[in-house]
Design a protein around this nucleic acid. Structure first.
Ligand SMILES: Nc1nc2c(ncn2[C@H]2C[C@H](O)[C@@H](COP(=O)(O)OP(=O)(O)OP(=O)(O)O)O2)c(=O)[nH]1
Ligand SMILES: [Mg+2]
Ligand SMILES: [Mg+2]
Ligand SMILES: [Zn+2]
Length: 581
DNA sequence: GCCGTTTTCGGCCCGACTGTTTTCAGTCG
């Protein structure tokens, strides 16, 4: 069982407990534990074996026992027991927006309904109206929500939604009644995927802004519209939530709406202990059980300061220890896009890229980089027209000529000649014979034969790392967001090997990869690894994806000096040279 | 179920909107 599988099991237990009307705090514990497992940098099985599960915040003896059972037997007795009373089909019904655990329990208890299809049929034949707490409107909305559920992908790529968020924020800012607007939620935290778009605006007349927004053409459907918030769907079905408050509450509202939910809960618990209370309008004094004066709210800095904390970057707000770190002055000095001075993975028409090396270089220059690495595929990757010795030599000539041309133009931009070499089935690195000394650096990537078992794949990659032939590992887990699971590999062993042999790990900045992810980037740095953030661009436009890689790095608490492509060229060359001895 | 510079027991974030409600539960952010 992968951590992701375990996380889902815990979440489903929480859902079942909620249908069963269990203690809400107990339910919350399962949800928190589910997130904690999803955020683990190590395999849960390892923690079980070493009896370290309860060291994880949010996992105590009870849930540790559940996880242990899941790891060893694949099933949880507690969950099986719940499933005796409440069939698994009810879990799917909870995905329908506006249909929660209480209604699920009622329709199952009263009508025996346990599938979405049956629920739909019951709503169509107006059987739900007879149930307590449900009426004609309930049925109507439910049918619409079922249609939305059937249509939609639960989450979308940040890379697809961030531009939409930016466009909507611009639209808000242009409205005369809007003072300020920002996107918030998981988009502002730069999560790799987002469930919806969360927008915040301030105004002297929030109700007017809400009314205007609800009428926008961009909203295909309005789910609800009040005086301070509007929820709707874009064409395509993706949800948008707009929250509008007065300017004096901007900071508090942005803090609230940025989340994460768990971070907010931590913040608010801290406030309680300080005799304060926090909501989306501000930080308030709290005396004798009554709310008193507002002490902060206009800016996020003010809100955190009122709680004795420094402001922290949205990317850190995931309840992964950021509040303790903030309190102790241990917040990382996060890497920024402007720290990046090169891109070290990209392709040209020599393999499966769409344009010339020079075109790519010109775009890198425009992006303000000092140098770049051209890294086409190696010969083993025939589907991508990988380079054999002859073509790699020809490419080398072209790189030399391009550098001369740039120099003649007075540019000090430099093109390094690299190769994205396949890691072959025996762990050998696919650098054509006699070509190693030609290359400034070599990336080792797995592209083929990754559907075997975890030990084999890990072994291949570790062998490549130990060979001394590769300078970094490209897209280390091979995941494609919303499309393909990571290779089943023991990432922790790969990270250890990279730390030992001073091989860097890539954060592939392509919005569908973001690989390594945030938690493993953080883990890799903790283990002493260097990182490198690259776009893996196949055309000039894709070179602009660098920001997504930096976002992922920031979510992983990464600082600039551990990322080799923040280094001046001389430093990178010195590191490469030292590695080759 | 988890957790602990006030606690190993007794707390656990806080508010908006909707529909069916005659005072608020359910769902969601
Ligand atoms: N205090 C508090 N804030 C919440 C709660 N639920 C949501 N929020 C805040 C924090 C969230 O980041 C923000 C937006 O809610 P969303 O449901 O859209 O979540 P978020 O954007 O974080 O993730 P998503 O990618 O949309 O699933 O609202 C809650 O239960 N309590
Ligand atoms: Mg959201
Ligand atoms: Mg939302
Ligand atoms: Zn690749």
């Amino acid at each position: 069982m992968t951590n992701q599988d375990i996380s889902r099991e815990l979440e489903e237990i929480a859902d079942l407990l909620e249908i069963a009307e269990a203690n809400p705090f107990r339910i919350r514990s399962y949800r928190r534990a589910s997130e904690a497992v999803a955020d683990l940098a190590e395999e849960a099985a390892t923690l079980v074996a070493e009896d370290r599960l309860t060291e994880v915040p949010g996992i105590g003896k009870g849930i540790a026992a559940v996880i242990e059972q899941l790891v060893t037997t694949g099933v949880s007795e507690d969950k099986e027991a719940l499933l005796v009373d409440y069939p698994a089909g009810l879990l799917e019904m909870l995905r329908i927006s506006g249909f929660g655990p209480r209604k699920a329990a009622v329709v199952y208890r009263e009508l025996g309904i346990s599938t979405v299809d049956d629920l739909e049929a019951a709503a169509e034949s107006e059987k739900l109206q007879e149930l307590p707490g449900m009426g004609a409107k309930t049925e109507e909305k439910l049918l619409s929500a079922i249609a939305d559920y059937r249509r939609g992908q639960e989450r979308a790529l940040l890379g697809d939604m961030l531009p939409v968020a930016e466009m909507l924020v611009e639209k808000l800012r242009q409205h005369p009644d809007v003072i300020a607007a920002e996107y918030a939620g998981s988009t502002r935290r730069c999560r790799e995927t987002v469930g919806d778009l969360d927008l915040l605006a301030t105004s002297d007349d929030p109700a007017a802004v809400c009314q205007w927004f609800a009428g926008l053409d961009a909203l295909e459907q309005v789910i609800m519209a009040g005086d301070t918030k509007v929820s709707g769907r874009l064409s395509g079905g993706r949800q948008v939530d707009l929250r509008v408050v007065e300017q004096q509450s901007f900071g508090a509202a942005l803090q609230y709406f940025t989340g994460s939910m768990q971070h907010n809960v931590r913040v608010r618990e801290r406030a309680q202990k300080m005799n304060l209370t926090v909501n989306e309008y501000g930080v308030f004094e709290f005396h004798d059980e009554t709310k008193g004066d507002m002490v902060a709210g206009a800016t996020e800095e003010e809100v955190y300061a009122a709680l004795g904390l420094p402001w922290m970057a949205p990317e850190l707000r995931e309840d992964r220890g950021e509040i303790a770190a903030a309190e102790e002055g241990r917040l990382p000095d996060l890497i920024e896009l402007s720290d990046i001075c090169c891109d070290l993975q990209m392709h040209s028409h020599y393999s499966d890229g769409h344009t010339t090396i020079e075109q790519m270089a010109r775009t890198c220059i425009a992006l303000g980089y000092q140098y770049m690495g051209i890294t086409d595929h190696s010969q083993a990757l025939r589907v991508a027209n990988g380079l054999d010795a002859e073509r790699l030599n020809a490419q080398h000539e072209e790189v030399l000529e391009l550098n001369e041309k740039l120099e003649a133009e007075g540019s000090d931009f430099v093109v390094l000649h690299g190769l994205e070499a396949d890691i072959l089935s025996d762990g050998a690195v696919d650098v054509p014979d006699g070509c190693f000394d030609l290359l400034d650096f070599v990336i080792g990537s797995l592209h083929q034969g990754f559907s075997t078992d975890a030990d084999r794949i890990t072994g291949r990659m570790v062998t490549a790392v130990e060979s001394g032939m590769i300078d970094f590992v490209g897209h280390p887990t091979g995941r494609l967001l919303l499309a393909r699971q990571p290779y089943g590999l023991h990432l922790d062993q790969l990270i250890s090997a990279c730390a030992e042999h001073d091989v860097a790990l890539e954060i592939n900045a392509s919005p569908q990869r973001l690989d390594l992810d945030d938690v493993h980037s953080r883990r890799a740095v903790e283990q002493g690894c260097k990182l490198t953030i690259n776009t893996d661009a196949h055309d000039p436009q894709m070179l602009h994806s660098m920001r997504y890689g930096v976002m992922q790095a920031r979510r992983g608490w990464v600082e600039a000096p551990t990322v080799i492509n923040t280094w001046p060229l001389a430093d990178l060359k010195a590191w490469l040279a030292a590695r080759r001895k």
